[in-house]
Design a protein around this nucleic acid. Sequence first.
DNA 1: ACTATATCCTGTATGC
DNA 2: TGCATACAGGATATAG
Length: 281
Amino acid sequence: MPELPEVEVVRLGLAQALPGRMIAGVRVLHPRPVRRHAGGVDDFVTSLIGRQFVEPKRRGKFLWLPFADSDALMAHLGMSGQFRVDDPGTALPPQCRVVFSFEDNGPELRFVDQRMFGGIWLSPGGAEAPAEIAHIALDLFDPGLDLVALVAAIRSRKSGIKRVLLNQQVVSGIGNIYADEALWAARVHYDTAADQLSAVKVRGLLVAATEVMTAALAQGGTSFDALYVNVNGTSGYFSRSLSAYGRDGQPCPRCGQGIVREAFMNRSSYRCPQCQPRIVD
DNA sequence: ACTATATCCTGTATGC
DNA sequence: TGCATACAGGATATAG
């Protein structure tokens, strides 16, 4: 599932492929990924033709592709969204939803999305600071992040710590995989109330999250199957380095106890029952 | 303001 | 073999 490192891998790939290029044609093969575009499918197509891409940007899991004017193409990969850069003659992937062709007749930009939780749309005036992400907090890679303020914000919450880590309005970019990995590294149970954790512990959790996402980025991101790939269609290798996520029944790399999977927020949480015991107060 | 839950979506894996 | 169900989990609307 694309979280911060995976989205950053995509951003880096697009930064190699798009700046300076002008859109000549847009084909929308399925309307759903364009549902957030205010003017509908036809307006999406006509609004984008003639635009010239500049350097792609990212906050958390949101990606935006600014144009040489003041607007931007907003994007979120959702669960299974992909950007692919492929030569015009090559076959379209099975769940290809939108295709951009260019005036230079070079490689096309293709938005592929099996489950279609993702989407792309035009953000008027969004080149620098898109209104759509005004409510999204800075991520752990952002140079402007105030770590002390973030620790305080997390500790002001009564919810379980994992809910808080997943709340993109508190800190962005962390999803189910890296939340579980950070909690494992910091030896914290996912349901510990955030306001019961010390500032040192919360800081340690954020450092752990930053470290695991940095390592994942260096390996090209985490992928279990063909659902998450880079712009060339290949997968990262970080799934081999995970300590807790997806390791139900396998030994904890630190103590050897079996990792357990538990239902949590309509998804799964993985933890080591010995290193991350439930806190009872 | 904060918190928790339902909802969207489809390919793959599993069970009977 | 065929059919039904569980599962993966992003952001957001809505209710409490």
